[in-house]
Design a protein around this nucleic acid. Sequence first.
DNA 1: CCACTGACACAAACCGATTTGCAAAGGAGC
DNA 2: GCTCCTTTGCAAATCGGTTTGTGTCAGTGG
Lengths: 331, 331
Amino acid sequence: MVTSRRIADVASEAGVSPTTVSHALSGRRPVAPATRARIMDAVERLDYRPDRLATSLRTQRTQTLALIVPDIANPYYPASARALLDGVNEAGFMTLIANTDGDPEGEREALQEMVARRVDGIVMHSLATSTADLRRIVGPDLPVVVVGGVSGLIATDLVVTADSVGIGEAVKYLHDKGVRDLGFVDGTEGNGMHRLAAFLGAAHALGMNVQEDWIGHTPFTREGGFAAAMSLLHGDRRPAAIMCANDLIAIGVMDAARALSISIPQDLAVIGFDDIETAALVTPQLTTITNPASLTGATCAEMLLERIALGADAPYMTRVLPTSLVLRESA
Amino acid sequence: MVTSRRIADVASEAGVSPTTVSHALSGRRPVAPATRARIMDAVERLDYRPDRLATSLRTQRTQTLALIVPDIANPYYPASARALLDGVNEAGFMTLIANTDGDPEGEREALQEMVARRVDGIVMHSLATSTADLRRIVGPDLPVVVVGGVSGLIATDLVVTADSVGIGEAVKYLHDKGVRDLGFVDGTEGNGMHRLAAFLGAAHALGMNVQEDWIGHTPFTREGGFAAAMSLLHGDRRPAAIMCANDLIAIGVMDAARALSISIPQDLAVIGFDDIETAALVTPQLTTITNPASLTGATCAEMLLERIALGADAPYMTRVLPTSLVLRESA
DNA sequence: CCACTGACACAAACCGATTTGCAAAGGAGC
DNA sequence: GCTCCTTTGCAAATCGGTTTGTGTCAGTGG
C-alpha cells in the first residue's frame, strides 16, 4: 500500500462510478452481481478502506463513544472500562477516553471536546456537573449514560449501584459486633457524597455514634486515605471502626493505623468500597463492599447502544446494580 | 443551545463570509480588529464550536491518537495510559483506546480501524505483528511508537525498558544468596519472550540450573500464574526460585505456593516484573523488577509528539528506560 | 495623476465519502 | 410493436469546515 485509496480509485479500477461502489459496499441499493464482484475484487486489490472521517461527516454518525472518568489509573475504572470496550466493540464502536481528576472544569472541557468530535454517545463517571449544565453542553439529543449519583434533575440515562444497600449491610454488621463509634472517610466533597449520606442514614437508624470530627474528606487515593486517617485518629477519642468511600482510601487508612500501631481489626475495624482486586491481597485482607465494576461497564455499553437505537425521545432509563458486603479480615 | 451551529451561522450573525470567520479563528490571514471583534462576539453568542470532523477531513489531521494495549484491565497499563493521556492532552490530542488480548488478529483489526479513523499517531504495546506487517497496515508515514520488543526489522519508533538489566540483577541476587535451581513463568509465547531470553542468558552466564520443565508459558494473569506454578511445582524436583514475566503471574505463583504449603521465601523465592502498586501490598510483599509504567507512558507521549512534529523522514528513534530490582519479602 | 502596494473580504474549489434524482436499457404484458 | 416497469448505473448535491485565487479600496511614492 503506497498511499491510501479513495473510493474514486476503486471506481475507476472496476470501471464504474463512485456511486455504484458505495451502493455495492453499503447494500443500500441493488447492484448487479457481476458488477459487485468486479468492485469487490478492486477493493481487495487496492486494499481500499473507506475514510471514516468522510463517512462520518456525511452520515453524521462516528461510530465512536466517549468514556470520561476521574482517573483511569484508579484501579476501579480499568475493569469497568474493559467491559465497556468489549461491549461496544462488537457493535463496531471505538472509544475515546478522557480523565477529569474529578474537576468540574476538566469535566466540562472533556465533554465539549467530545461533542466537537461528534461522538455518538458518552459514558460519564462521577458527574460533578448538574445534568442541566450537562445538557447545555452536549445538547438535548446526544446519548449520555451517567454512572453513579447525580445532583439535580435527571436528564440522562443512569447506571447506579445500590451503594446504600451494601453500606447498610456493613453498618449493621459492625453494629452486631458491638461497635458503636463509627467514622467515615469520604472522597472529595461534591462527589460520592451519597455514600456518606447512606452511611449517616444507616448509622443513625441503628443509633450509632458518629462524631463530626470522625468524618473526613480526601481524594480517592491511598495517600488521601492515609492523611485523612492520621488526622482522624489523632483525637483523644477514636472511633472503633472506619468506613471508606473506596478501597484505596481504606488501604491508606490501614497504612495510617499501622503507622500509629493500631491493630486491625482488634482496635480498629476498616471497611472499604469497590472490592478492587488488590483488596483481597493486602494484609490484613480488606473487608469491603463489592462494586461490580465490570458489570457496570457492561451495563453502560448495553444502555448506550440501546439508547442510540431508541433515539432521544424514549424516556430516560435507570438501572440499579447490586452491592454487598464481602467479609475478610479487616473488620 | 438548541442545535449545533455552523460556521455559516456565525458568518451571517457577524455579517461577514465564512472565509473571514475561519481566518479570524485560525489567524492564518489577517482580519481587521473590528471585524474580528464582531466575529468573536457572534461565536460567543451562538456558542459556536467548529465541527472537528469537517476540520479533520479538510486538514487531514484529527488531533487524535490511538492507544492499543493487550488488556487495559491489566494493572500495568492504566498507569502508563494515564501518563500518556496527560502528556498528549496538553497538546490538544484525544486518545482512542483498543484492547487486543495479545491476539495478532485483534491487533490487526485494531490497527486497521485506527487507520480508517485517520488518527495522527499510534502507541502500540507488545506488538505481536512484525514491523513490516505493521507498516503494510498503517502505511509508511503514520507515526507509530511501539513499546517493548519487536520481532524483525525495526520500522517504528521504539520505547523499550532495559528488562535484561533488571533481570540480570535479579538472577545475580539469587545466585549470591546461594540459589542454583531456577524456574521462569513467561507470558503467552511470541510475546514477552525477550524476558525469558534475558533470564536464560543471565542464568546461563552464572552457571545456574534451569530445567526445561521449570519453564512455563501462560497468560499474563494471576490465574495463569497459579495454573503454571501448580504444574511447575508438581515434579519431584522443584526449583528454589521462580521468576515471572509480570507481577500478576508472580502473585498467582504465590497463590500456588500457599496452596501447596510451600513457604516463601524459605522454600521458594518468587520474583515478579513490573512493580505494580499491588506488589507492595500482597503478603509476603513481592520482590520484583520495576517497570516504570508512568515514565513509559510519558515517554511515548513525548516521542509521538516529536515524531509528528518531525515528519516521517527523520530516522527512527529508540528510547531505553531503566529497570531495577526492588527487594521486598518474597525473595 | 498614475502605478503600486498592502490590507481586507469574498467566491469557489476541495477534503472523501453518501444519497437523491434521473436516464438508459432490458423484459413483461397486451 | 408499444407502453410500462424494473433494474442498473451515473451526475450532482451534500456534510461543515479550510485554503487559494481574486477583487476592491485606501494609502504611498514618484
